[in-house]
Amino acid sequence: MATRETSLKKSSPALFQQVQGVLRTQEGVLLIITIISVLILATQTDKFLTVKNLLNQGRLMTEIGLIALPMTFIIITGGIDLSVGSIVGLSAIMLGYSWHNLGFPLEVAIAIALGIGALAGAINGLIITRFRVPPLIATLATLAFYRGLAEGIAQARSVTGYPAWFFDLGQRETLGIPNQLYFLVIGIVISAILLSRTTFGRSLYAIGNNELAARFSGIPVNRNKVLIYAFSGFMSGFAGYVLVSRVSTTRSDMGSGWELDAIAAVVLGGTSITGGTGSILGTTIGLVLIQLLKNGLALSGVTGDATIVVIGSVLILSTLINIVVQRRLRGV
């Protein structure tokens, strides 16, 4: 990395300034780390850097990606949502239950699953805003509660036997690209625009930086918070639907532990856990980096236990590199 920078500096100062400009952003540093990792992994196996493999990885990371987007919003406001994995399970169960047990048409059942997800998220938001419960505590409690509801409703039964069209989303491609990946891309674009180009998005940064000041400047803090938690619940519900469509069955333990995967993508993407900074671009790079690392290591013959050691180290190291680089640049 260092040699590349110096050579660039010699050949073209303007280009160097551009590179430096990119480096000034957390996303730029992370992007460089990602590119280096990809290049290293590509030298280990020729199966890694192929269109087919990369698209397949897109399919596999969609569910976590869908959850990581609203998680970015929430963490930017200084909050956190630990209940997302449980909402995935609850929505998945509701999908199967309302179709199989309550006899709704499957389309309606999907809508119910998404609605339940949004409702569960909105309840998180209401508990957080109306009762002023810290988000970590509120969603820690609903993590247990929503999972419990899923178990109670499911009564340990899985629902299978969906009609063929139901699997279009999770198991088929359009124009060679996995169907769910379109939704992830649309989600990324909408979330990015929402966050960086609208008043609503800017209000989230304001809340994260100083909630009291945001309140005084007339931002509807509570309403916006409830909205993003509801959005988080909705996207978790959608992720649940995508997962059910991909694996063709519903189980009450679906999505367990996903909250940590989503949070890892967000914080790796440079969103500060204390709120106020962060971007959808960063989260997307973080998500891609983790997925490609897992995949590339597996393809190079690294086993699962060693892979999670690498992922954990990368999480700490890349955050460290970013902090050091930012500090240096600001110092210059």
């Binding site: 409690a141 609903t142 993590l143 247990a144 509660f145 929503y146 999972r147 419990g148 509801l149 178990e151 109670g152 499911a154 009564q155 340990a156």
Partner: peptide, 8 residues
Amino acid sequence: FWTRAIQG
């Protein structure tokens, strides 16, 4: 089946 919900 309902214990976890009640705990939560």
